[in-house]
Structure formats: structure tokens, C-alpha cells
Simulated assay, not measured.
Amino acid sequence: MSSTSSGSDPATATGLGQALRSNAAARLPARPAGHKIPAMPHSRPFMLMLAIPVVLILVLAGAIFGGQVIADSQRDHEIQQAIAATLGTSSDIELLNLQEVQYGYGVCGLYQSADSENGYASFFYDSVGDRLTLDVNSREFRSHCDLSAIC
């Protein structure tokens, strides 16, 4: 091997590196003597690292929990309409002590019609089949809403 090879001679490699640096410096536009590079504003890292993720998390949480509230409200309205249709009344139906059963596919609770002189009565509403059961002695009501089924 020869000693003038560029890969083995450190002096040649250093000279090549200096030549590359001087060529790169020659290509850069010259800056005026008093010119400074503008500093990055201090609020930008704060916005990128903290504020934007927090705002996005809050928006996502609002969308998830807001959607759940709307879905529950619609379900309650469906139950009220089903009870009113079954009873054949147009008066308001008040729901009380609603409890989800069957992993959220059914609802047990109490209802009272505004024009009823009686107290509250029990019901079971199947959300999948949109079926309402008002008979507390029925097999469907006892298997889902009976105290032994809940415990």
C-alpha cells in the first residue's frame, strides 16, 4: 500500500475536511456584522409540549362522555315512550331508580304516570329488542330485575 492513499493518511483526511468546511462556509450568504439570529419565543415550547395535548385530551374526553350522556338521554326517552304506548296514555312518565342489567342491554326501574293515582310501578326494558315488560310476575322480569338476579 502506498502512503499517499487518502484513506490511510490522517493528514490528508484532515486537509480534506478543512477544504469541505471552507467550501460550505463560502456558499453561505454573508450576514451583516450586527445581525443576530432571532430567538425562539418562550411560549412556543409550552404550546407544543403542554397546552395542545391537554386541550386535545379535554376535547376527546368531552366527546366520549358527552356522547354517553346523549345516548342515555335518548334511551330514557325511548323507555318513556314505550311505557306511555303500553299504558295508552299521553301524560308524562317519570322514571326512577334506573339500573342497567345484562351488561347494559336491559334496564330495570320504576315508573309513574303523571295522571296515575297509584305509586310507582316496576318495569324491565330490553334495549336490544325494544321490548317492555310491566308484569312483575313474568319470567323475563324476575330473571333480570328480581333482587336475587341483581345480587
Score class of each variant (00 low, 15 high):
Tyr105Thr: 15
Thr86Cys: 02
Ile70Thr: 15
Ala82Asp: 03
Gly106His: 03
Glu78Arg: 12
Thr86Ile: 04
Gln102Ser: 15
Ala61Pro: 05
Gln102Arg: 15
Leu110Gln: 04
Ser90Asp: 12
Gln80Trp: 06
Leu60Trp: 15
Ile83Val: 04
Ser91Asp: 12
Thr86Met: 14
Leu60Asn: 08
Ala82Pro: 02
Ala84Asp: 02
Val59Asp: 13
Gly66Leu: 13
Thr86Pro: 01
Gln80Ala: 14
Ser73Ala: 14
Ser91Lys: 11
Leu87Arg: 03
Gly62Val: 13
Gly66Ser: 08
Ile83His: 00
Ile79Gln: 00
Gln68Leu: 11
Val107Met: 04
Gln102Thr: 07
Asp76Met: 13
Leu87Asp: 05
Ala61Met: 14
Gln74Arg: 08
Ser91Tyr: 15
Ala61Gly: 05
Ile64Arg: 04
Gly109Ile: 06
Gln74Ser: 04
Leu96Ser: 09
Asp72Thr: 12
Ser73Gln: 07
His77Lys: 10
Ala84Gly: 01
Ser91Asn: 15
Ile70Gln: 05
Ala82Phe: 07
Leu96Ala: 09
Phe65Leu: 15
Leu95Phe: 09
Gly88His: 05
Val101Ile: 07
Val101Glu: 01
Ala71Arg: 05
His77Gln: 14
Asp76Ser: 05
Gln80Pro: 00
Gln81Trp: 06
Phe65Asp: 09
Gly106Asp: 11
Tyr105Pro: 07
Asp92Phe: 06
Asp92Val: 11
Ala61Arg: 11
Ala71Val: 15
Glu100Met: 09
Gln99Trp: 02
Gln99Ala: 08
Gly109Arg: 02
Ala84Phe: 07
Ser90Gln: 09
Ala63Thr: 12
Ile79Leu: 05
Tyr105Phe: 11
Asp92Lys: 12
Tyr103Lys: 08
Gly62His: 12
Ile64Cys: 02
Val59Leu: 15
Ala84Leu: 05
Ile83Lys: 00
Asp92Pro: 07
Gly106Ala: 15
Glu78Asp: 06
Gly104Met: 09
Gly67Thr: 06
Gln74Ile: 02
Ala61Leu: 14
Ile70Lys: 10
Gly109Ala: 11
Phe65Met: 10
Ser73Met: 03
Ala84Met: 04
Glu78Ile: 07
Gln68Ala: 06
Gly109Trp: 04
Gln68Cys: 08
Ile79Trp: 00
Tyr105Gln: 09
Gln68Arg: 10
Ala84Ser: 02
Gly109Asp: 03
Ile79Arg: 00
Asp76Glu: 13
Glu94Met: 15
Ile93Met: 03
Ile70His: 13
Gly109Tyr: 02
Gln68Gly: 05
Thr86Gln: 09
His77Tyr: 13
